[in-house]
């Protein structure tokens, strides 16, 4: 009996060690040559890591935008960039630590979900430099990047008020959390400012990943006479677009206002009135560049708004919207930048 155990165990360990040593020799080379390839064009020994939230880098939203920013940074400066995708809440901390413990120069956390993990990692590693998008972390080695979504939302609210024929306008939110509430508050204020008679209906679907829910919500809104819907609901908003496209085909005059990125690229200009763009990519590039030049400012929260050109209407809509609407938008924009109008953060 004992012999048998021994033989089984020894075979197992032997094959395992063979497998390990067999492959242990090779990898040093290829990995070296691989990382050497892009560096050949432009040299930089800086390394920047980024941790996504559960949405992943292809989320059509801020994760993707941030990663596009970093990739642009790499091609411009030769800085090494890499991302780690999180498949669950518990992975945020180890993913951050992957970069931090490996002494990367800067580690990004994308999304408010990473606020607590970043705080924890920052406290445990006071020498590391970290940054977060869409969240605020009070730690001396963390830069927080926040957007004034309410300001950009105000402007798309103005567009909606000007373009609406029924004077009934909809807002579809994801989960009722402060970020999304800023969208709603700014949007409502913008509509009211441009047209006090217009009415805004707002509904929170309670999810960022339920297109079916977005579709049914949009359907009931359009049926009530709403002709423009602004959504701030991630993937749920895809359903809003689908509903609008379907109605448009049947001759209805309905529109959607996209969020985060220029969504007319995905859903077409015939239903996308405009999009409230958050320039996460540019913010990421800016903060990363500062770090590379030795100007990293920990403990600071950067609030990016209209003044910084970090939020606003999508480029494509500047060409498609009527000139008088754009003129009105510009007027309000000037007033917000000058401080004449303060956009509320809570609806």
């Amino acid at each position: 009996m004992n012999k048998k155990i021994l033989s089984v165990i020894s075979v197992a360990t032997l094959s395992l060690s063979l497998a390990l040593t067999g492959c242990g020799q090779k990898p040093a080379e290829p990995s070296g040559s691989e990382s050497g390839a892009p560096a050949a064009e432009q040299k930089s020994d800086k390394k920047i890591g980024m941790v996504t939230d559960v949405g992943g880098v292809n989320d059509n939203s801020f994760n993707q935008s941030a990663w596009e920013g970093l990739q642009k940074l790499q091609s411009e400066t030769g800085i090494n960039v890499q991302y780690a995708q999180s498949t669950g809440d518990a992975e945020y901390v180890p993913n951050l630590n992957t970069f931090v413990k490996d002494k990367w120069d800067l580690t990004w956390g994308i999304g408010f979900l990473l606020a607590d993990p970043i705080k924890q990692v920052a406290e445990q590693n006071p020498d590391a430099k970290l940054a977060i998008v869409d969240g605020e972390v009070a730690a001396p080695n963390v830069t927080s990047v926040m957007f004034k979504e309410q300001e950009g939302s105000f402007l798309v609210g103005v567009v909606a008020a000007e373009m609406s024929k029924s004077n009934k306008i909809g807002f579809v939110g994801g989960i009722k959390i402060p970020v999304i509430e800023r969208f709603e508050a700014g949007f409502k204020a913008g509509v009211k400012a441009a047209n006090p008679n217009a009415e805004v209906v707002s509904i929170y679907t309670g999810a960022f990943d339920k297109p079916d829910l977005g579709k049914s919500t949009a359907s009931s809104m359009y049926s009530q006479g709403v002709d423009i819907i602004f959504h701030a609901s991630g993937g749920t908003g895809d359903g809003v677009f689908n509903e609008a496209t379907a109605r448009k085909k049947n001759g209805a005059d309905v529109w959607v206002i996209g969020v985060d990125k220029d969504q007319s690229i995905n859903f077409g200009e015939d239903v996308t009135l405009t999009s409230m763009v958050k320039k996460v990519d540019e913010a990421v590039i800016q903060v990363s560049k500062d770090m590379a030049e030795g100007k990293f400012e920990g403990g600071k929260t950067i609030n990016l708004g209209l003044k910084d050109n970090a939020v606003g209407l999508s480029e494509s809509s500047l060409k498609t919207l009527p000139a008088e609407v754009l003129k009105k938008v510009d007027e309000f924009k000037a007033k917000i930048i000058s401080g004449e109008i303060t956009v509320p953060e809570k609806p």
Partner: peptide
């Protein structure tokens, strides 16, 4: 992709240091 490199990276990640 190089599978051997990938599997080494997998084991390295798990057994490479105390933290992980």
């Amino acid at each position: 992709f190089n599978p051997i490199e990938a599997y080494v990276a997998l084991f390295d990640k798990v057994f490479g240091d105390m933290y992980n």
